[in-house]
Computed example of a mutant assay.
Amino acid sequence: MWTPTPSEPSPTRRILIVGLLSGLSLALALLENALPLPAPGVKPGLANAVSLLALLLYGPRTAWSVLAVRLLLAGLFSGNLFALGCSVAGGMAAMTVMTLLVRGAAGEVSPPVVSAAGAVTHNGAQLLFVVALLGSRALLAYLPLLVVSGLASGLAVGFLAEWTAKRLDRIRRESMP
Rank of each mutant, 00 (worst) to 15 (best):
T5C: 10
T5D: 15
S7V: 15
S7T: 11
S7I: 14
S10I: 05
S10T: 13
T12A: 15
I15A: 15
I17N: 08
V18M: 01
S22F: 14
G23Q: 15
G23L: 12
G23M: 07
L24G: 12
S25G: 09
S25T: 07
S25M: 07
A29Y: 05
L30H: 07
N33W: 01
N33T: 07
N33Q: 15
L35I: 06
P38W: 12
P38S: 01
P38N: 03
G41K: 02
G41L: 05
V42C: 06
K43H: 03
P44S: 14
P44K: 10
G45I: 07
A47H: 02
S51L: 15
S51A: 09
L53F: 11
A54R: 02
L56H: 10
L56A: 01
Y58Q: 06
G59M: 09
P60K: 08
A63L: 09
V66Y: 05
L67R: 04
L67G: 13
L67K: 04
L71D: 01
F77I: 04
G79N: 03
G79E: 07
L81T: 13
G85A: 09
V88R: 05
A93F: 00
A94D: 03
V97F: 13
T99K: 06
T99F: 14
T99C: 12
L101W: 08
V102R: 14
A105D: 10
A106Y: 13
A106C: 15
E108L: 15
V109C: 04
S110N: 03
S110P: 05
P111E: 03
P112L: 10
V113G: 06
S115I: 08
S115W: 02
A116C: 01
A117F: 00
A117P: 11
A117D: 07
G118R: 10
H122C: 03
G124L: 10
G124N: 05
A125M: 00
A125P: 03
L127V: 11
L128R: 05
V130I: 06
V130Q: 04
V130E: 00
L134Q: 15
S136Q: 14
A138Q: 11
L139P: 04
L139G: 11
L139T: 02
L139E: 09
L140C: 12
L140K: 04
L143E: 14
L145D: 00
V147P: 05
G150P: 00
L151E: 13
S153V: 02
V157Y: 08
G158K: 00
G158T: 06
F159S: 12
E162P: 12
W163G: 11
K166Y: 12
K166V: 10
R167A: 08
D169C: 08
D169A: 15
D169Q: 12
I171N: 11
I171K: 13
R172T: 14
R172N: 10
E174K: 09
M176F: 12
P177V: 01
